[in-house]
Computed example of a mutant assay.
Amino acid sequence: MFKKLIVLSVVAATVMLTGCSSVPVPLESKEIESITKTFPNPPSGKAGLYVYRGSNLIGRANTQLKVVLDGDSIGRTSENTYFYKVISPGQHKLDTQTTIGPSVPLVFNAEAGHNYFVKQDPNVSSYVIYGGTSITMVDEAEGEKGVLECEQAK
């Protein structure tokens, strides 16, 4: 019985670590990417939202993670990608969905004139605890650094 449990655990860990391979997300033009990577102020009366995903053990499987803002899909990320979205001020609910299920949602209040940075972290503990990935609001310095290491997805 104990041997079966060990074998099952190894198989489950392998599946979680390899993920479901998929085609990388389409990328934005380098011209648009060069503008968003200067981190301009959002348009008047609006806020900016950067969602980025670096590289890690799970990310190397190149799985796409669907990003949902206030119930609407706003894009997908894969390893080392980000996207930028202009949003209205006010309370928002951000979620990431994987083949396993949604993450724990991130609820935040956006103020006009500010950029917000959210890091997706698809890691083993997130797969076990959160159903696939964790999403975290990070400060401007960490967010800009993370975005600069990524390519912009459409």
Results as ranks from 00 to 15, higher is better:
57 L>Q: 09
71 G>Q: 03
110 A>M: 07
57 L>F: 09
123 N>A: 14
52 Y>M: 13
53 R>A: 11
81 T>M: 03
73 S>Y: 02
60 R>T: 12
95 D>Y: 02
138 V>M: 12
148 L>H: 06
51 V>Q: 04
69 L>H: 09
138 V>K: 05
119 K>Y: 01
113 G>M: 04
84 Y>K: 03
87 I>E: 04
92 H>S: 02
102 P>T: 13
73 S>R: 05
99 T>H: 04
109 N>L: 11
89 P>I: 04
115 N>F: 07
127 Y>H: 09
121 D>Q: 10
58 I>A: 11
71 G>R: 03
47 A>E: 06
63 T>G: 15
78 S>V: 06
125 S>W: 02
90 G>H: 02
118 V>D: 01
142 E>T: 15
63 T>I: 09
47 A>V: 09
128 V>F: 14
52 Y>A: 13
128 V>R: 06
130 Y>H: 14
136 T>S: 11
77 T>G: 08
62 N>S: 07
71 G>D: 01
98 T>D: 02
149 E>G: 12
65 L>V: 14
97 Q>R: 13
104 V>D: 14
92 H>W: 04
48 G>S: 11
85 K>R: 14
58 I>F: 04
95 D>R: 10
74 I>G: 05
140 E>I: 15
124 V>E: 00
118 V>W: 00
123 N>W: 00
120 Q>L: 15
80 N>K: 10
139 D>R: 10
94 L>Y: 07
101 G>E: 04
82 Y>Q: 07
66 K>E: 07
94 L>V: 12
47 A>W: 05
87 I>R: 06
61 A>T: 14
146 G>D: 01
104 V>M: 13
126 S>Q: 12
136 T>Y: 00
148 L>R: 13
151 E>H: 12
117 F>A: 08
137 M>K: 15
99 T>P: 01
60 R>G: 01
105 P>V: 12
59 G>N: 11
102 P>R: 13
148 L>V: 04
83 F>W: 05
146 G>I: 11
93 K>Y: 00
75 G>P: 11
147 V>W: 00
146 G>Q: 06
147 V>H: 01
51 V>Y: 00
76 R>K: 14
104 V>Y: 12
64 Q>N: 15
111 E>T: 11
